[in-house]
Amino acid sequence: MAGNNSFLVKMGQLDRRLVFVVIGIAVFLPLKFPIGLAVVTTPTTQDVFNAVDSIPEGSTVLVSFEYGPSTRPEIEPMAITLLRQLFNEKQKVVAMALWPDGQFMSTRVLERIADKEYGLKWGVDYVNLGYRPGQEAVIKGIAKDLRANYNSDVRNNPVEDLPIMDGIYTVKDFDFIFSLSAGYPGTVEWVLYAADPYGIPMSTGVTAIQVNEVIPYVKGGQIKGILAGMSGAAEYENLVKAGDATRFMDAQSVAHFLIVLFIILGNISYLVQRRKQTA
């Protein structure tokens, strides 16, 4: 028995590099050889889908890109799926970014979806206004006067010449705001300085880490639903069209499972040790 026990104790004191290797393999294998586990939709994801679905056809939606390369795997699938849902319902999309790298992200996604997949017209069906520095001050700024902040789009067309921007002078003129956010400035700032003060409906997709910071606003009704991390993205894809997030979910599942397994091993070892000490 003693030998058995010491084995259990050792299971709680593995070298961290061993943990690294196991996690690495757990992510790599399912990516190479997918299992295809089914995705279950959570209510908050359904809320996002419904909120976007209920925007009257032909509305103008502001989609803000607040993420960068480091959080792309989580948010980009959401961005792609969101654009598909919006374009399916003939909404017009005005993209902007509070993060400088957000503009790279939006350019990439719009090129792929709006231009190649849907063949839509720049300046009529969608436009990318790009990034302006100043964090929440940008939101405050466009709440007062959008054209003072954005006089032209990223292709240097003056905003006055863009049909899609006709009649849009402040953030209040948008029918819906969608924030794709990986941190500050992001969803919380959109709630604070635009959605709340002016009563504009908004919804959001955030990284898993952001969820806890944002969830009170969702429950407070200030945000309609939330896409939480990659699993949120996969659930959303499930409602619109399958994409990358769905493909990645197997690896996510296996990795989570292994981490929990490690935690359990650590605790068995801890309890055995504690009993030894008290005995």
Binding site: I23, V27, F28, L31, K32, S70, T71, R72, P73, E74, T207, A208, I209, V211, N212, A228, G229, M230, S231, D244, F248, A251, Q252, A255, H256, I259
Partner: peptide
């Protein structure tokens, strides 16, 4: 409980990024 939940989400987020990188390497 709130911190535990945050941690759970954090694990999820970090693993997602790792998946993104591995997908790139593949």
């Amino acid at each position: 409980i709130s911190f535990g939940a945050s941690f759970g989400f954090a694990v999820m987020g970090r693993i997602s990024l790792l998946i993104g990188r591995f997908d790139y390497l593949i």
